[in-house]
């Protein structure tokens, strides 16, 4: 455990504006990709990556997890890993990835 001294090293208003701009642009890119037929085969991984990037930006900068105590990081990322793992396992069980063990 550490102290909260790291807390004071906050992101500046300028950083916030940059992050917000990036979020807007990435959203536009996501929607654009959706309409490009050539990207069809890699649409799913591409969109999930972009979505994850937005997720990380909001959590890291707006929620200050990048600068904040490790304790907060643990409280969030631990449960997030469990949730994602269970979602993936369930999708596999129900054959959402096509074939696999599922199709119950």
């Amino acid at each position: 455990m550490e102290n909260s001294t790291a807390q004071h090293e906050h992101a500046s208003v300028k950083t916030y504006l940059v992050v917000a701009a990036v979020l807007g642009v990435v959203t536009a890119v996501e929607v654009a990709i959706f309409y490009v037929e050539a990207l069809e085969p890699i649409l799913v991984p591409l969109l999930l990556t972009l979505s994850a990037a937005k997720f990380a930006l909001v959590v890291g900068f707006f929620m200050h997890l990048k600068y904040d105590s490790k304790v907060f990081r643990g409280l969030f990322i631990g449960p997030l890993i469990v949730a994602v793992a269970i979602i993936l396992a369930m999708l596999a069980l129900f054959g959402v990835f096509g074939g696999g063990a599922g199709g119950a």
Partner: peptide
């Protein structure tokens, strides 16, 4: 404990892999 739940469901036929 979060990775064992389907052992309550062996009899529903989840398939050999599961």
């Amino acid at each position: 404990g979060f990775g064992v739940w389907a052992h309550h469901m062996f009899s529903v036929g989840l398939g050999p892999i599961a």
